[in-house]
């Protein structure tokens, strides 16, 4: 069993804090409660795992803030990274 961290209650992703194999359960805490998410692919340390389905065009939330937008549908347990995420930041010049 691997480990992950939920940073903010509003987040729809958790971050792996151990290297996770495909199909491995990642344990994370929500307050004092322990939950787990089953990975559908290998996810390295420091990378993000989806908790609930994120539809294409929807916000990816970490730190309680929008860190990017899904460029395709992302299912629970999937790896969230540059292959399925668009940048949301643009300078306001």
């Amino acid at each position: 069993m691997g480990k992950a961290v939920l940073i903010n209650d509003k987040d729809n992703v958790v971050t792996a804090v151990s290297d996770l194999q495909k199909g491995e359960d990642a344990v994370y805490k929500v307050g004092s409660e322990t939950r787990h998410i089953k990975t559908s692919e290998a996810i390295p340390f420091g990378h993000k795992i989806t908790l609930a389905k994120i539809a294409k065009g929807s916000d990816i939330i970490k730190y309680g803030e929008t860190i990017g937008r899904a460029s395709k549908d992302i299912k629970p347990g999937q790896w969230v990274h540059i292959h399925n995420t668009d940048e949301t930041y643009a300078p306001s010049r």
Binding site: A16, G46, K62, Y63, G68, T85, Y89
Partner: peptide, 27 residues
């Protein structure tokens, strides 16, 4: 500076966007 803000090392480490890197630092 915006274009080179997200380094290959950042991506390898799991940071996906400039926004994520910035928000992680701004915490």
């Amino acid at each position: 500076v915006v274009g080179c803000q997200l380094t290959e090392g950042n991506k390898k480490g799991g940071i996906t966007t400039v926004a994520e890197k910035a928000i992680g630092a701004t915490t």
